[in-house]
Design a protein around this nucleic acid. Structure first.
Lengths: 245, 245
DNA sequence: CTCCGCAATCTAACATGTTAGTATGATAAT
DNA sequence: ATTATCATACTAACATGTTAGATTGCGGAG
């Protein structure tokens, strides 16, 4: 009868942490990846507190690697550290989502513009191969697979710039948008539109037309944010309290 | 006569560390800032090892905040951590410098394009005020002051997007370029050219001409990298060894 | 019922002890 | 002289102890 000490067992995100054996690298890196997956998959809900002690127990590590992991998450904006009080999974903020979309657009437009000027035939083939796979995924009703291929297409294009950090930078800009996207119900017909847009992008790049590539890429990227805007009113609980003065 | 134990006293970067009292925030943050200043000002030379113990002694803190600071520097690419061996100030890499310039350009072009569409009269006045101060600095032969105002102009423009992280993101993209810039001897006449380019940028923004603003900003940013290219052959010691297979 | 203070209990931040992998330099073998 | 071996002295990585600020919840005063 000592269970009444706690009002509710209320599974605290931490119990959904994936074991570190699924990752590789130092304990700190693996802890970071595990926590990040948990936050992005929303096992930890926005606003929820991260209990270091609990995390240590669940993952079987000491506080050092956990602290290092939290520091990284904080730098990425996935958690908010309140000094001497606690660490909380950051809530959504439409301002941040818009900024993330803006930054991603800036990077990706620069990338397609550059790539359209320097792409090789072999690389074009890789892009077309990816498009084909996207259609196969849809035909097989494998939507998760489709999203993977979608992400892969964007990554491919950015990697063709020859720069390595740009993809990771776009990724981290995009993190908030991606997290929010999980809450959006799939709009019927949107997937087919998406494929059409992807084709236009690849065509413009293959035609070595940087201006056209910029335009169609911009049109494509701006679709998502449009679909995301209504989320703020539909799920206000996920968002930061509007500054209550 | 026990001084011969060490081949050379060789002041090890660490002795040029600025005291933490010059900064604010947690010890970890202040340690990070102090180390970053030391690296950017080249008190620590590229390739030099960071001795944790020494840093602890000089700054009067324990290893925890120093470790956290080094983790941040590592994430920014200013130091390379070799597991179980040591932490070294990263050498220059022309590839990284080019990538930094590319990323910076991507962000700044997106910024001026956006700002040219939404700028207010008041904000234009701030930009013109800055231009005026730049000319005053030159007239007074205050080159450091000029560079501050230069940076301020770029920051101002980016802040007018209404986004907060973009400035800091551009900053971190730019870090390698900035560090390398210290080694470039000032080219006569370049400063006057720079002012002219700044004027063109502000004019295009004030004229609310996004395309023109993109063009002149791009022209401006590409000057610097042009001046930087020769550094690799002039000071090969500062650069990574070209992969020796 | 509301507001205020106070103490128990959280937390991050900091300090320090421990472990294990890596480089280095002297010495021995060739 | 050159290479191989091995002990020593580094280091990052990890574990754990300590400190001080913030929150929370309870009880009492108004």
């Amino acid at each position: 009868m000592d269970a009444n000490k706690k009002k509710q067992a209320g599974k605290s995100g931490a119990c959904n942490l994936l074991p570190l054996s699924r990752y590789e690298g130092t304990l700190a890196v693996r802890t970071y990846l595990s926590l990040k997956d948990a936050i992005l998959s929303l096992a930890y809900e926005p606003g929820e507190i991260l209990r270091k002690r609990e995390i240590c127990d669940v993952l079987g590590v000491s506080r050092s690697p956990v602290s290092e992991a939290i520091a990284k998450l904080s730098a990425e904006g996935l958690v908010d550290v309140v000094p001497k009080a606690g660490t909380f999974v950051s809530r959504f903020s439409m301002d941040e989502i818009r900024e993330g979309a803006f930054l991603r657009e800036a990077l990706e437009l620069a990338a397609v513009e550059q790539v359209a000027n320097i792409i090789t035939g072999e690389q074009v083939a890789m892009l077309r191969q990816n498009l084909k796979q996207q259609e196969e995924m849809i035909a097989a009703q494998d939507f998760a697979g489709f999203y993977d291929k979608d992400a892969e297409l964007h990554d491919l294009i950015m990697s063709f710039t020859g720069f390595r950090r740009i993809g990771q930078m776009a990724q981290s800009s995009w993190v908030q948008v991606n997290r929010a996207r999980h809450f959006n119900l799939p709009t019927p017909g949107r997937i087919q539109e998406t494929i059409e847009e992807h084709k236009k992008i690849v065509d413009a790049i293959a035609a070595r037309d940087p201006e056209k590539a910029r335009k169609v890429t911009r049109d494509h990227l701006r679709q998502l944010i449009k679909y995301l805007e209504p989320l703020e009113t539909k799920r206000p609980d996920l968002f930061e309290a509007p500054s209550t003065k």
